[in-house]
Design a protein around this nucleic acid. Structure first.
Lengths: 203, 203, 203, 203
DNA sequence: CATGAATGAGAGTTCATTCAT
DNA sequence: GATGAATGAACTCTCATTCAT
């Protein structure tokens, strides 16, 4: 058993190693331009080796996506402990930004990329996505319980909030801010978020 | 003369035909996965034919993009004549939606796709984009002049507004609304927009 | 009749026009890189037009070759009228150089290019080549009659002479003089020819 | 170790196999008309395989060229040990012929083909060519030291000698001896060389 | 477990050539 | 007589994937 366990562990480590490297490359080069060979070169193994750990590029893609959602969820756990749920909700936007700008490759994968979704795995694949989303809806509901958002539908609220932060992030990530002066773009992003958080209190 | 005119017209029609088809395919498959061959097959011509109308894949991409921005701008012209600029601004969101959902391929190309921007054309290429954007900033400024958005920065406002509608649209277009019940998604989108428009008055 | 004649004449003129242009391009770009389209563009006609005057690229190639040999022969006619055949023979080398360096494209075609010789025309195609060559052999024989080249075979002599000048020219034309200092190359060529001519008298 | 050695050897053999085949095809069809596909077909491998051994068509070309110059240099090493440098110089011509007619593909590549020299390697690429050439200039200088070639410039001499043998070889290799009777061509070549060698003593 | 070797399929692109008008 | 439109065949090159060792 001990031997088998160690083997299993080593196998997992290798898998993770590949995963991390692939994720880095996705971030650096984008999905389409990241080839199995590129990954193989970076991990200093042969392309064939990758196929020992992942059935094909698709499975690799899903595994990375899984990783991404896990990390995303971890970021969400760091939400402030403030008594006021509105404060926490406002902080969540900043956490979202942090994740997106620290892991643009993951973000792309999770929320923008039109990926090969032709596999069945879809069910449990979104599991972690749901969990993260329920952090948001949870906060929205807490806000409502605390007297905010009077008369508003929580689903609509969560959707609007998500859409807004996603919109800000994805215009940036996909380089669509050319109408704004280059030096001011980063500022603009945070000002927009702050403005939105401001408004949130008045909704 | 008549002959030449007809020829010219036919040539333009063919060009448009290719353009439309390519845009559809770009939408369906993404830029990288849309090959000249795929387009050729769909229009039932040989790949070489496409090169009679476009220098290379890049030029084709730009032409589509150009078309897209033109159409986008046309949509923007239909903004209501309401005396209250806030009403007009609120209407603009609906127009934006209309464009996006009636032309999802174009939308993708314009605001989501990571495209080969390695060409020099960049200057005039974004011209129409700028024009459309200034419709938005124009309305925001009018609103300010009319007493709305007191104390707010117009650039931040326009960026937030754009980001929000873009966020709503792109989550939909890129199929990232799986956390919401399928039948309610469309409703949700419009409710979010209405909620946002609502809020706008209070900013 | 008059009409037909004029038509025939015009047709010949067009043919020649194409021929000249093609020859220029061959000189400029080399055989392989000269496409029908390139030629068409330069003459400002459509590619299809060229096929009205030449069956295919091969025939065009042969026609140019024909032209080249004609011109070559013309150059040879300018050989000096010196009483001493040795002087005339020595002058022929310079004429050969003149042709080669004034018409490097032709020279390539005639003496270097591995051309599509898959056609039957071969018989009369070399006719003019033979004529030019017999100018050389004629002079060699005259030299022998005048007492030069005692005990030497005229065929061997003519072949050696031709080979030598061709060797000098083709090393230059095909850019194989890199071992010699760039500025001295042209000089070297003429000095070698002069040296060879010098030697010739002592053979 | 033994395994790795064998693998390495096999890899080299494959590389050489491709190299030889490509050289043959370059000879037969010229550089431009020799496609990767043609080579692949001839070696009965897929086109992609060639890219495992050579980065691209250019590198393949350079590798062949390299090989060719190496072999050429080896031939030159076999020059006779005769005390009289003139004898050795005269022998060099025969060695040159031997190389050229035993390796016409290589010869073509080295001294005739208009190849894509757009790469930077040019410096060390001609290294071996220079070395071979200095064998020639060395002999010429020895001859001068021994009292031959009185009053002649060594550079001009070496250039003339090279040009002459190159001229003979390249008229043959490029099939331009149609003016001479087929059966006598080979003889003619050697007679011209002998005649030239003869003359050399009198220069 | 790891990989070197190989490949089929497909990418963008160019070109000589044809043919209806 | 001239050509616009079209194409089949060819090009170089890349990539995910397989398999014997």
């Amino acid at each position: 058993m001990g031997i088998n366990e160690r083997r299993e562990r080593e196998k997992q480590e290798m898998r993770n190693f590949i995963l991390r490297t692939a994720a880095d490359l996705f971030t650096e080069l984008g999905f389409e331009k990241t080839s199995i060979r590129t990954i193989a070169e970076k991990i200093e193994y042969s392309p064939a080796t990758i196929y020992l750990y992942f059935k094909d590029k698709n499975e690799l893609f899903y595994a990375i996506s899984q990783e991404a959602f896990q990390l995303f969820f971890k970021y969400f756990q760091t939400v402030s402990q403030d008594a006021d749920p509105m404060k926490r909700l406002q902080g969540l936007g900043h956490i979202y930004f942090k994740f997106a700008f620290e892991n643009p490759g993951y973000y792309d994968l999770m929320f923008i990329l039109r990926a090969p979704m032709d596999v069945e795995e879809t069910e449990d694949h979104w599991e972690l996505g749901h969990q993260s989303h329920s952090v948001l809806t949870g906060l929205v509901n807490e806000c409502i319980a605390a007297g905010y958002f009077k008369g508003r539908d929580p689903d609509v609220l969560s959707h609007l909030i998500w859409s807004t932060v996603h919109g800000i992030v994805s215009l940036k990530v996909r380089d669509r801010m050319k109408v704004y002066i280059e030096e001011e773009r980063t500022d603009l992003i945070y000002q927009s978020l702050d403005l939105f958080n401001d408004i949130l209190e008045k909704v």
